[in-house]
Design a protein around this nucleic acid. Structure first.
Lengths: 260, 260
DNA sequence: AAGTTTTTTTGATCCACATCAGGTTTATTA
DNA sequence: TAATAAACCTGATGTGGATCAAAAAAACTT
């Protein structure tokens, strides 16, 4: 084993992974592609050297040319507000696509930075588009991934405009938990790849508030925290606190002209 | 003229508009399609009876089957929070697509309701997908529209987590102004299709706060307001106040390992 | 291992906006 | 055209979380 540089979430340390053998393929772009097509996709993907913590994948304003799939580690997206403040717009875990929101302009609208040692698959967008011309399944997977991000963004808008500090942090933790679970990791025990400061920034809260909520959650035995290690002790109550769990199918009621 | 039912923004009252003759085609799906292809697109589009104010296009939880292009009037998207409160996630003006965020699930994740008398083009998604199979230009236009919505959402997240009440309202007004302008209408004088309540809901503010900010803006002669009629008197200062104008291309600076 | 920096925690104070309450205007309906 | 109901505005009061300040703990450096 080379060096102990691979901490935190780590899926595929080996550099020469192929899509076919990648454990993330069932969450990532190759979904529903057959072996042959995956192979084609594989050919256009470049596996880059791991990024060290703090290194950039791209900067806001850089020419848009690639989208990236996180393979291990984690990435944050952020923009600069006019008064020079950083605003985090997203955290990306393995199998998630980074850079989709730059797709219709010629530069990236946000920056992307590694939160820890991180490996990504680099996908030149023009070649992905070419390939998608021949693969309807790939096309609809790209659409699905964008649509999912749209939905997540709406949820985030809801959080930011309606939820209080405790609800925000509870939502954040349960959301991370769900994403870890889907990736085969424990939904109850995980390591936060970001700082309290970054959590606060993302959730629209001051660092101090995040810290206080963590403390309160520990006192009420919802979670146990040790630095960046989090244990969820009472998932039910935490989810309850998070509110609006997921998109619950509506009971179809009388519609018609229920004006205003 | 039938009845005085067509108030507010109104583009194409006639029911039998075709994409080729539609003045919105340069903003809508048909962008960059040739005449022949537009005609094909036209064939799958159904022009529905105008919706009256308060009527629904679809409900949260309804089976996802169509996306809609607004032809005249306006639509709001909203979801219900777990405590039964409404949360508006978007307003849609003519030429904008409604329903894209339901694309990867089988039900709409939000509801869509007409803010005024509104006409839409109904586009069965499965048929749009089929057509997109043959028309690369259509495909990339759909992607572009989704990507734009993603970017707008990030801007909204920024607004909700960093901006104060005045900045929010200023942003809202300049944003509307820009959209009206692009549609050939005056960027200085327009009619708000939504209530103060809905503005507040969308911006994460109480009605009272919205009202007060409107008053303050009038006192400082940034705008003149008469009910839902808005005149922007000082666009420069209003934009200034809105902050982070648009995605300003970054001056490329030294990158490397600027850790944290 | 000691020193330095960064991150996290906790307490005290303050303020922007929510909430409450009432009055006014505009829209809807009879 | 009056009656009723929405929508809107304005003032008074309260509060959740920001901000300020400073100590404690972790994470780097040397």
């Amino acid at each position: 084993m080379p060096k102990g540089q691979l901490k935190g979430i780590c899926f595929h340390p080996s550099k020469e992974t192929k899509c076919v053998t990648c454990s993330l393929s069932s969450l990532c772009l190759p979904i529903s592609l057959n072996f042959e097509d995956i192979d084609q996709l594989d050919k256009i993907i470049k596996r880059r050297q791991p990024l060290k913590k703090g290194e950039h994948l791209f900067h806001q304003g850089d020419r848009f040319d690639c989208v990236y799939a996180v393979r291990s580690g984690s990435i944050k997206n952020y923009a600069m507000t006019n008064d020079g403040e950083e605003q985090i717009t997203n955290f990306h875990l393995p199998s998630e696509l980074v850079g989709l929101d730059g797709l219709d302009c010629d530069t990236y609208p946000v920056s992307a930075k590694a939160l820890e040692t991180t490996t990504v698959c680099e996908i030149p967008f023009s070649r992905l588009e070419e390939l998608a011309n021949d693969l309807p399944e790939l096309r609809s997977q790209i659409l699905r991934m964008m649509s999912r991000e749209l939905r997540d963004d709406k949820q985030m808008m809801m959080l930011l405009s309606k939820k209080n500090a405790e609800q925000r942090v509870a939502t954040f933790l349960t959301n991370l938990s769900t994403r870890f679970k889907r990736r085969g990791y424990s939904p109850y025990t995980f390591r936060l790849p970001m700082s309290r400061n970054e959590i606060g920034n993302y959730l629209g809260l001051a660092v101090e508030t995040v810290s206080r909520v963590f403390t309160r959650f520990q006192n009420s035995e919802l979670i146990a925290v040790n630095g960046k290690e989090v244990h969820i002790l009472n998932m039910d109550d935490l989810s309850e606190m998070a509110g609006l769990p997921e998109l619950e199918p509506r009971i179809v009621a009388n519609d018609a002209q229920s004006a205003v």
